[in-house]
């Protein structure tokens, strides 16, 4: 611009996204619901990584936790019950430029969406999956979920759940090509934040199970854990989830765990005496399907027409 001194002719100031830039309509989860904490953590990760909101997509299914995209001011896809994964894979298949989060619940992921869960882990596309596991169906009002503990009463099992709960960590670690599996808790914001951030930074499908309190139906389930942190085992390792000094005080139980050892990860996942918290497994070399599906994005119209013409000509008589 004329009249301005040379040094003032700077480019537009770099864009600086604040937390507000990621905040959609006010969240309408129950007061005290663990989902609020996860939402805050995701927004903080987005801000700290300065993800352009228009380049960020949150995909979900159906359930309390699947309301998540509405509370973000990014692009969102609030889909069908159990079907967040195939939609997210479809988006990712041709859009390597986007930042993607998939939010699902224990009913959505571990019951109605089980087939997609298994295969999405195997596809290992670049997705950050957050399983908000409150051990219950909340939105439909208190039905047993696959992760409900034995003996817990619900509207569908008023005399108590007869089956042992499904373990989302060991199931995920049993899937060929799993590349990132972690567990965290909604009531420790620093660990929640660090875990989601590490999951976001992982290239491939990162699966984070979040133990999430439901104040309405399962408040007793994690209350005991919250008040007796000896029931939690903090996994520590240089390649694990970065830990703040405060966490050392809050988690009396700690164990060194190398996240590159699959057998050790499976063993930790299967412990039923404690909830392991931290990074169980990471494999950066796992095959990524999205690297295949995004090939050819740069083809010009002329190239596409030439290819079509070539195949069409084979049928010429």
């Amino acid at each position: 611009m004329s009249g301005l001194r040379q040094e003032w002719e700077a480019e537009a100031p770099p864009r600086n996204c604040t937390l507000q830039d990621y905040q959609g309509v006010p969240a309408r989860w129950c007061p005290g619901c663990g989902d609020h904490a996860v939402l805050n953590a995701v927004q903080q990760v987005a801000r700290d990584k300065q993800l352009p909101p228009e380049k960020t997509v949150v995909v979900s299914g159906i359930g309390c936790s699947s309301r998540f995209p509405h509370y973000m001011k990014t692009y969102g896809f609030h889909g069908l019950h159990g079907r967040a994964f195939p939609v997210a894979c479809g988006v990712r298949s041709r859009r390597p430029d986007l930042h993607m989060f998939v939010v699902t619940g224990d009913g959505d992921c571990c019951a109605i969406g089980t087939a997609h869960w298994i295969h999405t882990i195997r596809y290992n596309m670049d997705l950050t999956i957050l399983l908000l596991d409150n051990n219950i169906y909340g939105l439909t009002k208190n039905q047993t979920s696959p992760t409900t503990r034995t003996g817990e009463r619900s509207n569908t099992h008023p005399r108590g759940n007869v089956l042992p709960p499904l373990n989302p960590l060991s199931v995920t670690l049993g899937v060929t090509n799993a590349s990132f599996v972690a567990q965290t808790i909604d009531w420790n914001p620093p660990h929640l934040y660090s875990t989601i951030r590490a999951a976001y930074e992982h290239k491939g499908t990162s699966f984070v199970r979040i133990l999430q309190r439901c104040p309405h139906f399962t408040s007793h389930v994690f209350a005991a854990v919250q008040h007796d942190m000896s029931q939690v085992l903090l996994l520590t390792h240089d390649d694990g989830i970065p830990l703040e000094p405060s966490m050392q005080r809050l988690f009396p139980n700690r164990a060194a765990h190398d996240p590159h050892q699959l057998a050790a990860a499976r063993a930790v996942a299967e412990r039923d005496d404690v909830y392991p918290v931290g990074l169980l497994y990471r494999d950066e070399r796992a095959a990524r399907y999205d690297l295949q599906t995004s090939q050819g994005l740069g083809k010009s119209q002329a190239e596409k027409m030439a290819a079509t013409e070539k195949w069409l000509s084979r049928y010429e008589i």
Binding site: G79, P86, G90, V91, S93, R94, G296, G298
Partner: peptide, 26 residues
Amino acid sequence: QEAGGFVHQAEDEIAAIGFAIGCSYA
């Protein structure tokens, strides 16, 4: 593939349409 695209063989019919819807949404 020669035209720059691909065939996705999904894990089931539901995932097949869900994947296509995801592509289109994007």
